[in-house]
Amino acid sequence: MSQKSSDNGASLSQNGTSAYTFTKEQLAEIEVLKTKYPEVQAVTLPVLWMAQDTFGHVDPEVQRLVAYTLDLPESHVHGVAEFYTQYFKTPKGKHVLDVCTCLSCHLCGGMDTLGYLENKLGIKAGETTPDGEFTLQEAECLGACGYAPMMQITNDVYVNHLTPEKVDQVLDQLASGDTPDFESIPMPLVSTTSNNEAAGGSDE
């Protein structure tokens, strides 16, 4: 999910149809993907993901590349890309911050977190900072309801239990080129006799 990789991925089109190309390795990977499904169309989503991970977005040019690579109608790939919210139909900032404001997060301060980020970055939800570092987005439920408020970084790791301090820390980390680690949140023990919250499946 890094923008940098687009440097080796994007080049002059080989078939004259798209400004982007897949590498030989990626084309081989796509051939492997195709063997997993009885019909080519089924790899539309995985290949769009591959394209987005490579180029940072799936704008119409990238959609065209996917369509030509898979020999599917361009309109099909376009319709699919537009249906799913995680595909970026326009280039975004280097880091995309998806702040959940849905039900549980809304109850637990998701809007405050979003507001804090808006102030801090000086942009509104849906916008990108002028330096192209951050895009801020309001997201629907990301499935981390117990760990609200939270956000997802560029379609990848979740950062949970956000506080202003933690947000600052994450922004600094991202700005310095680092990505937050995956936070494993263990299952709390149910025993009433124990007050130990940290105990959990993988924590022994």
Binding site: P60, Q63, R64, A67, P73, E74, S75, H76, V77, H78, G79, E82, F83, T85
Partner: peptide, 21 residues
């Protein structure tokens, strides 16, 4: 010809061609 698709989602849905086609 598969030239048309529905784009977007929900009440923003509408038919269109792929951009540039």
């Amino acid at each position: 010809s598969h030239q048309l698709t529905i784009t977007r989602r929900g009440d923003k849905n509408h038919p269109t061609t792929a951009p540039g086609t």
